[in-house]
């Protein structure tokens, strides 16, 4: 039960981030820079299934504020 909730939360936040990236036409290079990581790290993290909420919460916040 709790594992399902955890998984769902992770999927939700990841999808929200992806939607914002598409909707705001965000440059991955600029986003990686804002996150303080390299482009390569960014792609690796997006591919990873590790439920790193700190990373996605930070990204979501940056994307919400993205102009």
């Amino acid at each position: 039960m709790i594992d399902d909730k955890l998984k769902q939360l992770f999927i939700d936040i990841k999808l929200d981030c992806l939607e914002l990236i598409l909707a705001k036409d965000v440059s991955i290079s600029d986003l990686s820079y804002q996150l303080g990581i390299s482009n390569k790290d960014f792609y690796n993290r997006m591919k990873s299934t590790e439920q790193d909420f700190s990373f996605y919460l930070k990204m979501y916040y940056i994307l919400l504020k993205w102009r």
Binding site: I2, L6, L9, D16, F53, L57, Y60, Y61, L64, K65
Partner: peptide, 21 residues
């Protein structure tokens, strides 16, 4: 300051799940 409501929603969910864990 300027924390959007969507973030608050995620914070609440994440904290709830953390506490259950």
């Amino acid at each position: 300051a300027g924390l959007p409501p969507e973030m608050i929603r995620y914070y609440e969910s994440a904290i709830r799940i953390y506490e259950e864990l």
